[in-house]
Design a protein around this nucleic acid. Structure first.
Lengths: 170, 170
DNA sequence: CGAGTTTATCATATCCACATGATAAATGCA
DNA sequence: TGCATTTATCATGTGGATATGATAAACTCG
């Protein structure tokens, strides 16, 4: 795999949180069920994302996970960082020191692709991956305005919560 | 890592064989020493390459490993195939079925890069990675000329062989 | 043939990513 | 305050990639 399983969990989880934890935090159980991923393992993974400043968490009733920043600010590189050293892929043959000064035999040919990959992870954001759910072109917004999500407010809560007063980002 | 450690061994080993096993086969001990990888593990790895039709092997005195085909015919994809399912990297999030019909959230954005990667492995050959030793541009290429090594043809054989009659590809 | 050399293969060992289950700690609320 | 809820953490298990060491099988050559 290109990314470790844990990193894939992390990206999918953060996208899911970004999409569904708009009003109130989302609990691990819901995320794990939605992604079909082991609950306790995901819990640990999410906690690492909290420490990395990608998510925020709270315990007890009304606890759960939310984004710590706007999805447009969360690059895949940031989400993957705690689990995967992406820069390591710069050398195809795994040499720790593979520079243009001391290149491995594949260096010159691989360089362009590896830079493109790093750029991809550095530029693609969680918001980019949310696009397809957000899109709802009934009124046909021309290009990529996923802001239209605002119209479809509050996608049906998968599990009925006591439905207390809605807390809007305390 | 992008490629598994074993795959990296395999590529480096095949390049080494291509460069040094021109007259007579090369023994595992020499390859393992040159690459600084565990001998028996490499032996097993090389054997898989034999079964894959990348290398040829022989036992006993005058045994060892040679290329089974011209280095121009050996793509990285072929060398990596026994160890690594490169096509699996087509989906960033690891979904088995991730097509344009049923795409993961990253599909559209990742597609171009993943195809470029597959193309790279399908087109780059062992000969390409030998280039720097093979090249002998006595007419001075301006920058980055590590090719000057090439002038010192046939780097000293690390271990003296009985030096019998040279057998040229039977 | 028989001795020596070299790959092929087998039986284990080690390490790490991934996962599980139980318990602790924090939080909200009646 | 005390109970229910939810994350945090700990102890442990499992499987596969990576290695190791020993033995078997094939080959060369005197």
């Amino acid at each position: 795999m290109l990314l470790s399983g844990t990193t894939q969990y992390a990206i999918r989880a953060v996208v899911h949180v970004a999409e569904h934890a708009v009003d109130e935090p989302l609990r691990v159980d819901e995320i794990a069920a939605a992604l079909d991923v082991p609950r306790n393992y995901l819990s640990k993974t999410l906690h690492q994302l909290v420490r990395a400043g990608v998510l925020r968490s709270g315990r007890g009733p009304r606890g759960g996970f939310q984004l710590a920043e706007a999805p447009e600010a969360l690059t895949l590189a940031r989400v993957a960082a705690p689990f995967d050293d992406l820069a390591q892929r710069k050398c195809l043959l795994g040499r720790a020191t593979c520079t243009s000064r001391s290149p491995c035999s594949a260096h010159g040919r691989w360089e362009k692709l590896s830079s493109a990959m790093l750029a991809f992870f550095g530029r693609t954001t969680i918001a980019d991956l949310m696009a397809e759910i957000a899109e709802r072109p009934s009124t046909a917004p021309a290009n990529d305005r996923r802001a239209s999500k605002a119209t479809a407010r509050k996608a049906s809560p998968s599990r009925a919560r006591p439905a207390g007063r809605t807390r809007t980002t305390p």
